[in-house]
Design a protein around this nucleic acid. Structure first.
Ligand SMILES: Nc1ccn([C@H]2C[C@H](O)[C@@H](COP(=O)(O)OP(=O)(O)OP(=O)(O)O)O2)c(=O)n1
Ligand SMILES: [Mg+2]
Length: 1187
DNA sequence: ATCCTCCCCTAC
DNA sequence: TAAGGTAGGGGAGGAT
């Protein structure tokens, strides 16, 4: 491309340029922003809290603050008062003691969150969570074990909807074992042949109208019968009622049962059908039908706004939603839209339905893309290879625009507000403002009272507590609304905004940015693919993006908001939070004669909201909805309730009943993954239920901050202030679409172009950076070559690596060439296969502003910015109100820890981070390995090396080739993947089958077969897992053992196996303390082993000293760190570990006691760490174990 | 304890 | 055809 440089991005978002950006400021009274400090005091006691004494991190004060708001908002007369802490607390004694037990048993684990979580039997929850993960694997295993079974479901592709009886995993197992294909998600471009459901919501029922929908009994019966039964006999009938209740009652329903045969023997955990039989009568019987729900309430011709010109909103009674729009609103209420109940929904199974992607991903492939991609010319024209790609891509990427707009708006609002504060209150309105007056009826009817009003003094209406009044203002179906403004004929129809226009059939993977509420009534959602949506609603009209229009309407939107609000927080192009505390207080103080109905107590906040809505309508010809409440959380929830085209004031007295039925997933910032985590920990995701959990329990599940936040949120408490504009901390550009390179040359050219783009963006905000990060998405080896989504990235492994960047003088830089050179260096240091790349991103961080930097001699080093030690962070503290959120008094906070950064142009020494996916540094090449050594490795080990090389695109010499096929590949770290926080995808290991192998595995993990039952997994399943997962589980088990049957039997060990190719000279004991040379730079391996021997000699008499073990592990780690070349690398690390293992083995050959177990656990841990490190590096695990 | 780095997660 | 970007909060765990 090369056309980059300074050609100020033609493909930027339609920018909010300064001229347009003259956001109007209303008349200004120079009051300070609402105070962040809120009162204190008052009694507490009654909050559930499992901390007997205040912990240092969570002092009482925090809770008091939280409680204060809680109390106030609850109108202080909550029954909670009566309940002592025990009302909701679980017994504390047990909790405490179990924690203690753990720490006694093994100090190394004592601070693991799962154990701190004493309360809920942290272990149980933890294991439950683990087990969930296993279920997925079990299913896949089952598939591989299903050979003996009649393949009665061959050719069927079956999707399972919602709660079922039997549960999903059992059904999936049955289907897969009998030759069927399980479809983890529904996508129109790869439809299933059948759907299983125990019941359906009306929307789903309609959604599935074109599918064959049967009850799970069909599968169960077919399996029993040994042949495929006619699905029609099991066709699911609509039975109305709440899906959830239905589902629940199914599970509770009594089970009669012909005990299922377990044709499986050993695999019983996997295929046990004994409890999965289902009474179909139970499924369908007894529930009244509600046929009305079968059809979406909104039907064609039922236009929301028939004239296309909305009337002014009616004045509403306090707390009552608008009464027009009833049909649509009802539809929404009844159908309870959710924030993606399945993984975030999307056209792409892979990216989201994380767990789902196991065996099935292979066939889900975009055939059309595959075909086109064969054509070299087409590829060069239409993928990221093309010179024109970047420009065209960014011009059309809605998400790019969304992001860009957001940051621009934040800046604009900040500037406007600053201007407002600086100028005196008599500052003339900006030009637009007077024009704006015409939009608003507010001033005519409810003039503002000059001067300040103390909000705390107003006490007459429901809103006049001392509390804030926050509004959340959000356009309805924004993109669509904008489009309809010029297409009135489409109002009332199912309209969506997407790139695909016309009707290219039901298979378009084009994403829907926004859909009208009419479309939503059919189940269509923002973010879906057009093809999916077409499946839900045949008559969908598409309209194109009009980014300019969105920007313009948004400017009007913000202009209007500025005229009303005390404070504005830009949330997005179509959404903002405003604080109108002051404004409402003024209204309340207004002379009664100015109020239309002075006889009645009025909800001024609601009136104000309707004024704003009217203004918006007039200015933009689009509807906004407004939620009003005392905090951000509730305002957002109120908006949801208000939509579409309404406003809603959520008052304190309704908070509790409002919150209780909500799902955590509906709370802002609590998305799919968090919800799953909560679900697996607590068994519920209802706010009402979670109210009963203690803060400590929530924190154990979600972490300190998030736990606290959730604890507050489920009570309707949200202490966050509106966040002012923050200094940018990073600038990035990434493209994860249309990346289909064939060689490094293409890649490097793209990297260069993208670097220039980032540089341009840096310049755009006048910042310089000190560090650049390259992010690479590589197709996961198990994912199809072509993703299901057209030109999409599919399932990927993600790699990140960064290098310092600087200008020629060593200063921070915005020079695209400098960035590019660092980025290219990173790329070249990694040896990816260009063909496998699916996404590329470049980020620059450690930003400085220009004037901060200049004179710094070339090699002299720079002051690293300790400059902003979390300036704003404090404001986002979940609880502590007393913390002053005003910007840090900066002064000496700038502790210029003058860190010297001597490297002007550092070389990209591949640096491997131990955690998940860093870049793999392939420093052990085939040529590094002696053939004799290679031969002595067991095959699994060889496979692992090969896997690493393969993934790294390194050619494998013939001598290192394998004869047979299967490979145990594992991803380094999944891109995203909702399903399990930090863990990568487990994978199956088809290699391990022989009895000896199995024994080896168990032995190495210090397990016996019986142990597996304690976590509910079969032996087969266990060995089929990848080694990391096995190790995880083994640790779980050993914890569990030490907890619950301490000191009892020791596991049986399998016969001793000789260490293969190790030649370790036994030598004399030396020091009884371990010294692994953190001080001595270069120790030779033998002396280390000597030291180890001597140390163990003494140390093994008692429990391992964590400190000493740590030293040892640190040594091993250093061996593995490619950056420290002084040590011997993998070979040495392995020798040390192996030697250690041997010492242990020797020592306890006669039998093991508790001490031995602890040592072995340490060993396993160390081994695991090494595997993880190497696994990261090679994208495989070293599963080898010996002893 | 506190910081730093490398992630994951979320939202539009 | 289609345009799956992006910044910040926060957790885990190692370094200091
Ligand atoms: N997955 C998504 C979600 C949103 N958007 C864009 C289009 C939306 O119109 C706009 C605003 O997002 P909202 O979440 O506010 O959704 P809408 O405004 O479309 O609908 P509503 O706010 O009424 O729910 O952002 C998008 O491109 N892709
Ligand atoms: Mg919206």
């Amino acid at each position: 491309m090369g056309s980059q440089a300074d050609s100020s991005a033609e493909f930027c978002s339609p920018s909010f340029d300064r001229a347009l950006a003259e956001l109007a400021m209303p008349e200004l009274d120079e009051h300070a922003p609402p105070s962040l400090c809120e009162g204190h005091a008052s009694s507490i006691r009654s909050l559930p809290n499992d901390e007997p004494t205040p912990s240092p991190n969570w002092p009482d004060e925090d809770e008091m603050a939280a409680f204060d708001e809680f109390e106030a908002e609850q109108s202080r007369k909550r029954k909670r008062e009566e309940e002592g802490p025990e009302g909701v607390d679980e017994p504390r004694v047990g909790a405490t003691s179990s924690t203690k037990d753990i720490s006694q048993v093994d100090p190394m684990y004592e601070d693991h969150p799962a154990y701190v979580a004493s309360k809920f039997g942290g272990i149980g929850a933890y294991l439950r969570h683990k087990r969930e993960k296993l279920q997925i694997q079990n299913a896949a295993i089952a598939q591989s074990q299903g050979q003996g079974k009649p393949q009665i479901f061959k050719g069927l592709e079956i999707y399972i909807n919602g709660y079922t009886v039997p549960p999903l995993d059992k059904l999936r197992t049955m289907i897969m074992q009998h030759g069927g294909t399980y479809i983890p998600y529904l996508a129109s471009f790869r439809s299933s042949t059948h759907i299983l459901a125990t019941n359906l919501t009306p929307v789903k029922f309609k959604e599935f109208a074109t599918y064959k929908v049967a009850t799970p009994t069909w599968i169960v019966d077919s399996v029993k019968a040994g042949k495929l039964l006619d699905w029609k006999k099991y066709k699911l009938m609509q039975n109305g009622g709440s899906a959830e209740r239905q589902g629940l009652s199914q599970f509770l329903a009594p089970r009669e049962t012909p005990r299922g045969k377990k044709d499986k023997g050993k695999g019983r955990e996997i295929v046990d059908v004994s409890d999965m039989d289902v009474d179909e009568e139970g499924v369908l019987g007894g529930v009244a039908e509600s046929p009305a729900l079968l059809q979406p309430v909104i039907e064609e011709g039922h236009d929301l706004r028939p004239t296309g010109i909305p009337l002014a909103g009616p004045v509403m009674e306090l707390g009552v939603p608008d009464e027009d729009q009833t049909d649509i609103r009802k539809a929404r209420e009844i159908f309870a839209p959710t924030k993606g109940q399945a993984p975030p929904l999307s056209t792409d199974p892979i990216t989201f339905e994380g767990a789902a992607w196991m065996g099935y991903a292979k066939d889900a492939e975009n055939k059309e893309a595959k075909r086109l991609m064969q054509n070299q010319e087409w590829r060069e024209q239409n993928t990221a290879v093309s010179d024109k790609f970047l420009e065209g891509y960014y011009k059309n990427s809605r998400l790019h625009h969304l992001s860009t707009w957001k940051s621009e708006l934040k800046t604009l609002v900040a500037e406007a507000q600053k201007r407002a504060e600086q100028s005196s209150s008599m500052k003339q309105l900006a030009p637009r403002a007077s024009q704006r007056q015409a939009y608003s009826l507010a001033h005519a009817v409810l003039p503002r009272i000059p001067g300040r009003v103390d909000a705390t003094k107003a006490t007459t209406s429901a809103t006049s507590t001392s509390k804030r009044v926050i509004m959340h203002v959000d356009f309805d179906a924004f993109f669509v609304s904008c489009g309809l403004a010029t297409r009135p004929e489409l109002r009332g129809k199912a309209v969506v905004v997407c790139h695909a226009q016309g009707n290219q059939g039901a298979s378009s993977t084009s994403e829907i940015a926004s859909c009208s509420y009419e479309a939503r009534a059919h189940g269509v959602k923002n973010g879906m693919s057009l093809g999916q949506a077409r499946g839900l609603c045949a008559d969908i009209r598409t309209i194109p993006y009009e980014f300019d229009v969105y920007r313009e309407k948004s400017l009007l939107f913000y202009t209007i908001l500025m005229s009303y609000a005390d404070e504005v927080q830009a949330v997005s192009i179509d959404e903002a939070l405003i604080d109108v505390t002051q404004r409402v207080a003024e209204l309340e103080q207004a002379p009664p004669e100015l109020n239309e109905r002075s006889d009645v107590a009025q909800d001024f906040a609601k009136l104000l909201a309707e004024d704003i809505r009217a203004d918006m309508r007039e200015a933009t010809d689009c509807e906004v909805s407004i939620g009003v409440a005392g905090n951000i959380l509730l305002a957002r929830l109120a908006t949801r309730h208000a939509k579409p085209a309404g406003s809603y004031h959520l008052t304190p007295d309704e908070v509790e009943s409002f919150m209780a039925p909500l799902d955590v997933g509906e709370l802002h910032n609590f998305g799919y993954a968090t919800k799953k985590k909560i679900e697996s920990t607590f068994g519920t995701t209802l706010c009402g239920e979670l109210t009963k959990k203690t803060k400590g329990a929530l924190q154990a599940c979600l972490g300190e901050k998030n736990g606290q936040t959730l604890f507050n949120f489920v009570r309707g408490i949200d202490l966050r202030p509106l966040t002012p504009h923050q200094e940018r901390r990073s600038v990035s550009a990434e493209v994860n679409y249309g990346i289909r390179f064939v060689n490094d040359e293409e890649v490097i050219k793209f990297l260069t172009d993208l670097s220039q783009e980032v540089a341009r963006r840096l310049r755009g905000i006048d910042r310089l950076g000190r560090q650049a990060t390259l992010k690479i998405m590589v197709r996961n080896p198990d994912a199809p070559q072509e993703a299901p989504k057209f030109m999409g990235h599919g399932v990927c492994d993600v790699y990140n690596k960064s290098l310092p960047i600087s200008g020629p003088t060593g200063a921070a830089t915005d020079d695209g060439n400098r960035i590019a050179s660092a980025i290219v260096k990173i790329y070249e240091s990694q040896k990816f296969d260009a063909k496998e790349l699916r996404g590329i991103g470049i980020q620059v961080q450690k930003l400085e502003s220009r004037n901060n930097v200049e004179e710094r001699a070339p090699g002299q080093g720079v002051l690293a910015f300790a400059a902003k030690p979390n300036p704003i962070k404090m404001a986002s503290e979940p609880v502590d109100l007393t913390m002053d959120s005003s910007p840090v008094i900066a002064g000496p906070a700038t502790r210029l820890r003058a860190q010297v950064k001597p490297k002007p142009e550092p070389i990209p020494k591949p640096l491997v981070r131990k955690t998940k996916a860093s870049f793999k540094a392939v420093e052990i090449l085939p040529s590094d390995i002696d053939l004799g050594v290679w031969a002595s490795m067991d095959t699994a080990m060889q496979d692992e090396y090969r896997g690493g090389w393969r993934l790294a695109g390194i050619k494998i010499p013939g001598a290192f080739e394998r004869s047979r096929q299967p490979q145990a590949s594992v991803s380094p770290s999944k891109a995203r993947h909702a399903h399990e926080g930090r863990s990568r995808e487990p994978s199956l290991n088809p290699l391990i089958t022989s009895k000896t192998d199995v024994n080896k595995i168990l032995t190495a993990l210090n397990l016996v077969e019986g142990d597996l039952a304690t976590i509910g997994i079969s032996l087969e399943a266990f060995v089929a897992l990848d080694s990391e997962t096995r190790n995880d589980l083994a640790r779980d088990i050993s914890r569990k053992k030490s907890l619950f049957r301490r000191g009892s039997e020791t596991p049986t060990r399998s016969p001793h196996k000789v260490v293969p190719h190790r030649d370790i000279a036994v030598s004399l004991p030396r020091r009884p303390t371990i010294r692994m040379g953190s001080s001595e730079p270069q120790q030779d391996i033998d002396s280390v082993l000597d030291g180890l021997t001597a140390w163990m000699d003494v140390a093994a008499e008692r429990e391992p000293n964590p400190r000493e073990v740590k030293v040892l592990r640190k040594y091993i780690r250093r061996c593995l760190d490619p950056a420290s070349s002084s040590l011997g690398g993998l070979q040495d690390a392995d020798r040390v570990l192996t030697w250690w293992e041997r010492l242990c083995k020797q020592k306890w050959s006669a039998g093991q006691d508790e001490i031995a177990n602890k040592w072995l656990a340490c060993l396993a841990d160390a081994r695991r760490e090494m595997n993880e490190t190497l696994g990261t590096r090679f994208a495989v695990n070293l599963g080898r174990k010996r002893l």
